[in-house]
Design a protein around this nucleic acid. Structure first.
Lengths: 216, 216
DNA sequence: CGGGCCATTGACATCCATCAAAGCGTGTGG
DNA sequence: CCACACGCTTTGATGGATGTCAATGGCCCG
């Protein structure tokens, strides 16, 4: 949440949270087509969002963790335009969008914050397009892992150790690769001494080598 | 712009336009890293937006035409996060973002409109991710052409004829393909009687066939 | 009218997908 | 609490779609 607010403003922003909701692993927070009413702020847990084409293919569009916002895609058409699914037991704050709009008319810092959140998502998406459009499998995975560990580190976790909450298939969907390619590439990183891979437990042994794959 | 406004509100929204700016083909409206101050509404002409990775690769993230908004990616960090370049001579309205924020606190319909524009961009980006992550070259190109012609049709142009403002390389960058693949795929569509291709002049001969490539 | 950019086309290489099989973990129910 | 089954992951063999390199040709703009 934004900084530099009056206590009074802060109190009102806190008041936006209408309720909390707990989800179990694999439970959907919302589905594509469902009526849009609220944004959700993740308190704990990890989510994935996915879109599907009419012929059944689907694509993971992102992985979200504590502090990040879900539901922005619903604003435009008054219905959610993707599925959001918990990858582990999770808890979210439910924030009715109408209340956000009302309060952000009175609290410029909140208004600014909302705009920034949406803009940040747009910039992130453009980065993913760059990845999907022009990188090779190893680079994609390196970018993915570095991004993940950086976000985890910002939340107080290790800079080098991580527990993947998503399957190889979900990673592959996000990165535009098949699950076998994800698995093979992880194995290659392990062979090269860049990673230690124990199922979903990863340990980054040579962060600079990963960096170099992105920035050769 | 939104509908159902009071004349007074409409007048004030019109007043947001600080100036207009004309651009020549290949001229940049803004560059990555430049200070963000305004959004731009396209009056005439076509633009591309592109992002670049540090090692020089770049990726076209979209093609924009009359009525669409450029610059949303700049909000988050107070500087533009992509390049926007005119693909033909063009004219835009310059809309200072500060004024938008101020006025949208007083005019809920404007506030809502801004939110929808940003949300629409997010949804569009997710669609592109689906395309880049899971479609084959022919499907990508079919989706691209159908989208383009639909947007042109909404602006009063033909439902079947179009003049590409972008090169094969730019299309390829957008679709995650090499220019040769774009060219070959267009040639194949022509052989199959789906398209007539005369350099950048395209004519869709069998729209249903294109549709079926997307939705098999 | 000419030069340079853009597009087309061919031959070949490469990366990743596909198909297949086996191993490992996890969690679930008896 | 243990055992089994299922899902997830790994790994191998093979093929196909697209990238790469190269040469030619056409169009547009200056």
């Amino acid at each position: 949440m934004p900084v530099g607010l009056q206590p009074e403003e802060l109190r009102r922003i806190d008041g936006l949270v209408a309720s909390r909701r707990r989800l179990k692993r694999r439970e959907a927070l919302f589905h594509n087509g469902e009526k849009f009413e609220s944004l959700f702020a993740i308190r704990t847990g990890t989510f994935k969002t996915c879109v599907a084409s009419e012929d059944g293919r689907d694509q993971v569009t992102g992985f979200q963790m504590a502090g990040e916002i879900l539901g922005l895609d619903g604003i435009v058409s008054d219905q959610y335009n993707c599925d959001a699914v918990a990858l582990e037991d999770a808890e979210v704050c439910v924030i009715p969008f109408g209340s956000i709009e009302t309060l952000s008319r009175e609290v410029p810092a909140l208004q600014r914050h909302i705009h920034q959140i949406m803009s940040r998502e747009i910039v992130r998406d453009h980065g993913v397009m760059l990845l999907l459009g022009s990188m090779r499998a190893e680079e994609r995975l390196a970018v993915f892992l570095l991004n993940l560990v950086q976000r985890l580190h910002a939340r107080g976790f290790s800079r080098s150790e991580l527990l993947l909450r998503m399957s190889r298939e979900e990673i592959g969907s996000y990165l535009g690769l098949k699950l076998e390619t994800v698995s093979r590439t992880l194995s290659k990183f392990a062979e090269d001494g860049v990673l230690d891979v124990q199922q979903r437990h990863l340990r980054i042994l040579d962060a600079q080598a990963l960096q170099r794959m992105v920035n050769p």
